[in-house]
Design a binder for these strands. Structure first.
Lengths: 146, 146
DNA sequence: AGATAATAGTTCGCATGCGAAATATCTTGC
DNA sequence: GCAAGATATTTCGCATGCGAACTATTATCT
């Protein structure tokens, strides 16, 4: 198959990603949020008092990027940032009441967003997950060798 | 499977994308290029005198983004930008000699980059492609309905 | 304890990425 | 042939995204 095939596969990955983020962005913008801000709301609701580095790991983003995202959410009064007492280098992130309220308002929006994806046959869902893991494993291995 | 499963799948898409782009970035940086610049070199070599909008379509990017990328490559003397005679609104993009030379220098690098991906069994390659297309179709349909 | 390492976040410079507005040019309708 | 709309590209403001440099704090080693 060769180089052409590989580039085609990654083109498709790119497109799936973009399509998903565009959907998420459109949903989020109904609540004056960005796609990532919606995801962050979700993480913070499930993990109160999370630290920035932990949040960055869950988002699969670097610390510097995450810091910027959180910063904008703090400015928008959605998130509160506080120094921990145990380790005065670290910050804990928590949803404000406004952030909590906004999350609840997105319930219906999120449900509508994701429903169509469940149309994918269960067999395909499992296959997709398995192969993606293989691809990821290969890529990570390459990265370490390089 | 539900919301959790879907978000997990997109998390993996994200990671595969990132892993691929990091590999590509590392390879490109050996030649003082970015990942996208390497991809653009490829497209321009195969399609001389391509227009910006066509390039944007091939990259699956917006015109404004593509314009910026080309701009930086023109500044780096890799690409030449000229008005077409037929349509004085449009620009044609062509590799300079320096751009052409740089592309040739990346031959070995690119081959090493992509080889590991061919380890994926052919059955999986085909399955992956098929399911990705399904996912993409579902997402596009959602986008149009929304 | 005191020097040194490591760690948590922020900031900086740069490259994508998007949509909207602006500009220049072409096409269409009359 | 000319006004109105369509099209190609650029520019702008904003949000990600990365790695490197920086600050503040904690851990480690002797």
């Amino acid at each position: 198959m060769g180089e052409q095939w590989i580039l085609g596969i990654f083109q498709t990955y790119r497109e799936v990603n973009q399509a998903f983020f565009q959907l998420l962005s459109k949903a989020a913008s109904k609540h004056k949020l960005t796609a990532l801000q919606l995801i962050v709301l979700r993480v913070l609701r499930e993990h109160p008092e999370i630290r920035l580095t932990e949040l960055a790991e869950k988002l699969n983003l670097g610390n510097s990027t995450t810091s910027g995202i959180v910063d904008r959410m703090v400015k928008a009064s959605l998130v509160e940032r506080e120094r921990t007492k145990q380790d005065r280098r670290a910050m804990t992130l928590t949803l404000t009441d406004k952030g909590m309220e906004l999350w609840r308002e997105t319930d219906a929006t999120r449900l509508n967003l994701l429903r169509p994806l469940l149309d994918l046959p269960e067999d395909d869902q499992r296959e997709l997950e398995r192969i993606q893991q293989d691809v990821l494993r290969i890529l990570r291995q390459s990265r370490e060798e390089a």
